[in-house]
Amino acid sequence: MEVRTIKVFTTVDNINLHTQVVDMSMTYGQQFGPTYLDGADVTKIKPHNSHEGKTFYVLPNDDTLRVEAFEYYHTTDPSFLGRYMSALNHTKKWKYPQVNGLTSIKWADNNCYLATALLTLQQIELKFNPPALQDAYYRARAGEAANFCALILAYCNKTVGELGDVRETMSYLFQHANLDSCKRVLNVVCKTCGQQQTTLKGVEAVMYMGTLSYEQFKKGVQIPCTCGKQATKYLVQQESPFVMMSAPPAQYELKHGTFTCASEYTGNYQCGHYKHITSKETLYCIDGALLTKSSEYKGPITDVFYKENSYTTTIK
């Protein structure tokens, strides 16, 4: 009895394709271990004539594949690729409408935090270190965002349907971005203890939790000093293409032309909904596939993004 075979390709990165001759009487799992086709788990399936010449994702289970996976995804987590594939199996079914010149995501599976993050990423200057993220990001900007969303979920250790947080998501993504040249110098002034300067680099240099107003941050924000008295913390120097200011959701007025974009969060910790506000020729609110415009805006804002380049204080 002759062994019926077909020729397929296996890959971990969709760049390096490895030619395989597979036995049609055995499952993919018996031949390769966990195997995925377009995100779908085909591990328990036997090869079919229609699979001839198709590319299958496999887990990096030998040295060659491990090197290829690390170079593309910059992670050695053995569960990463499987999590990416199972997320992709959902995100490829989502709709990605162009809204006001940006790629958004039609609401499904509690994905409003991903839509808000995706919209924000198209408006701030950011370059990702893992080629996987950078490639998928370019495709997302062009309207094909399924891979990018699935990668975000995998890097953030999230599953489809789980509630997510924009600030946490951005923080994970910033860790995989090139923020080497970003720098922030802060000064804390206390009447009792004097003053202390701190220099922050990388992710810490672009994120701040405690106030939404970048102007206020430049002037000074009140913080408790270690001595128990009130101290003032203010920005001395900022070198970065953008800054992200966050605070627990509270009524906040966004003035046209003073910011790049913002995240609105309605609801409580267990259950809520994100919308995205962007400042173009007027203010726009993007909620999944829905767009509304207004000249002014007041609502429960939790993150505001500002364009920056270089700032030095005039406070002496």
Rank of each mutant, 00 (worst) to 15 (best):
E2A: 12
V3Q: 11
V3T: 13
R4D: 14
R4F: 07
T5R: 12
T5N: 14
I6S: 08
K7F: 09
F9V: 04
T11S: 09
V12M: 04
D13P: 08
D13A: 09
N14G: 15
N16K: 12
H18N: 10
H18I: 15
H18F: 00
H18R: 11
V22M: 11
V22L: 11
D23F: 10
D23W: 10
M24S: 07
M24K: 13
S25K: 07
S25P: 02
S25H: 15
M26Y: 10
T27H: 13
G29F: 10
G29E: 13
Q30T: 12
Q31A: 13
G33R: 00
P34D: 08
T35N: 09
L37Q: 13
D38A: 11
D38T: 07
D38F: 09
D38P: 05
G39E: 11
G39I: 06
A40T: 11
A40P: 05
A40C: 14
D41E: 14
V42K: 04
V42Q: 09
V42A: 09
K44R: 11
I45A: 12
I45V: 12
K46G: 08
K46M: 00
P47W: 01
P47F: 02
H48I: 13
H48S: 11
S50W: 14
G53P: 06
K54G: 12
K54T: 12
T55G: 05
T55Q: 11
F56Q: 02
F56S: 05
Y57F: 13
L59Y: 15
P60Q: 00
P60K: 00
N61F: 10
N61M: 10
D62M: 04
D62A: 06
D63Y: 09
T64L: 09
L65M: 15
L65Y: 06
R66L: 11
V67Q: 13
A69F: 14
A69W: 05
A69V: 05
F70P: 03
E71R: 14
Y72F: 08
Y72P: 03
Y72D: 07
H74S: 03
T75I: 04
T76F: 10
P78W: 11
S79C: 10
F80K: 01
R83Y: 10
R83C: 03
Y84N: 08
Y84S: 05
Y84G: 05
A87L: 07
A87W: 09
L88T: 06
L88W: 10
N89L: 13
N89H: 07
N89A: 13
T91A: 07
K93S: 12
K93G: 12
W94T: 07
W94K: 05
W94A: 02
W94S: 05
K95N: 08
K95Q: 15
Q98R: 14
V99T: 09
N100S: 12
T103E: 02
S104R: 06
S104F: 15
I105H: 06
A108M: 07
D109M: 03
D109N: 02
N111Y: 07
C112S: 07
C112G: 00
C112R: 01
Y113S: 03
Y113K: 04
A117V: 12
L119P: 03
T120D: 07
L121F: 11
L121Y: 04
Q122G: 02
Q122F: 06
Q123M: 07
Q123W: 00
Q123F: 02
I124T: 03
I124Q: 07
E125R: 06
L126C: 06
K127V: 11
K127S: 12
K127N: 12
N129C: 04
P130N: 03
P131V: 04
P131I: 02
L133A: 00
L133M: 05
Q134E: 11
Q134A: 09
D135V: 08
D135N: 10
D135Y: 08
A136F: 07
Y137E: 01
R139Y: 09
R139W: 10
A140V: 13
R141L: 11
E144Y: 09
E144I: 05
A145R: 02
A145F: 03
A146V: 05
A146H: 05
F148V: 03
C149N: 00
C149W: 04
C149K: 01
A150M: 00
I152N: 00
I152F: 08
A154I: 05
A154D: 01
K158C: 05
K158Q: 02
V160Y: 01
V160K: 02
G161I: 04
G161M: 11
E162G: 02
E162T: 05
L163D: 13
L163V: 11
G164E: 03
D165C: 15
D165S: 15
D165F: 09
V166S: 01
T169W: 03
M170P: 05
S171M: 13
Y172W: 07
L173H: 00
F174M: 07
F174K: 00
F174E: 01
H176K: 06
N178C: 06
N178D: 13
L179Q: 06
L179P: 03
D180I: 05
D180P: 05
D180L: 06
S181K: 10
R184K: 01
R184E: 04
R184S: 15
L186K: 02
L186I: 14
N187E: 07
V189N: 11
T192P: 04
C193P: 07
G194T: 06
G194R: 00
Q195D: 11
Q197H: 06
Q197P: 05
L200A: 15
K201C: 10
K201L: 09
V206D: 07
V206L: 02
M207E: 10
M207G: 02
Y208M: 11
Y208H: 11
M209D: 01
M209Q: 15
T211A: 00
L212R: 02
S213I: 02
Y214V: 09
Q216A: 12
Q216V: 05
K218R: 04
K219N: 11
K219E: 00
K219S: 10
V221M: 10
V221L: 12
V221N: 05
V221S: 03
Q222S: 10
Q222M: 08
I223P: 04
P224D: 11
C225R: 02
T226D: 11
T226C: 11
T226Q: 13
G228L: 03
K229H: 07
K229E: 15
Q230D: 07
T232R: 05
Y234L: 05
Q237V: 09
Q237T: 12
Q237P: 03
E239L: 08
E239S: 08
E239H: 11
E239K: 09
E239N: 08
P241Y: 05
F242E: 06
V243S: 03
M244H: 05
M244Q: 02
S246N: 01
A247E: 05
A247K: 02
A247Q: 02
A247P: 04
P248C: 01
P248R: 13
P249F: 06
A250M: 15
E253M: 10
L254P: 04
L254I: 02
K255E: 00
K255F: 05
H256P: 12
G257M: 05
F259Q: 01
F259K: 01
F259E: 01
T260D: 02
T260Y: 03
A262Y: 02
A262V: 08
A262P: 01
E264A: 10
Y265A: 06
Y265W: 06
T266H: 09
G267F: 15
G267W: 15
G267K: 15
Y269T: 15
Q270C: 15
G272D: 02
H273T: 05
H273L: 06
H273I: 00
H273W: 01
H276I: 03
H276L: 09
S279V: 02
K280P: 03
E281Y: 01
T282E: 12
L283V: 10
Y284G: 02
C285F: 05
C285R: 04
C285G: 05
C285P: 05
C285T: 13
I286D: 02
I286A: 05
D287G: 01
G288H: 13
G288W: 01
A289S: 11
L290G: 09
L290K: 14
L290H: 15
L291R: 07
L291W: 15
T292Q: 10
K293M: 13
S294V: 14
S294F: 15
E296Q: 14
E296T: 14
Y297V: 05
K298R: 11
K298P: 06
G299W: 02
I301G: 01
T302M: 04
T302A: 12
D303Y: 01
V304Q: 02
V304I: 12
F305A: 00
F305D: 00
K307H: 01
E308W: 07
E308Y: 00
N309R: 08
N309C: 13
S310G: 13
T312V: 12
T313F: 14
T313C: 13
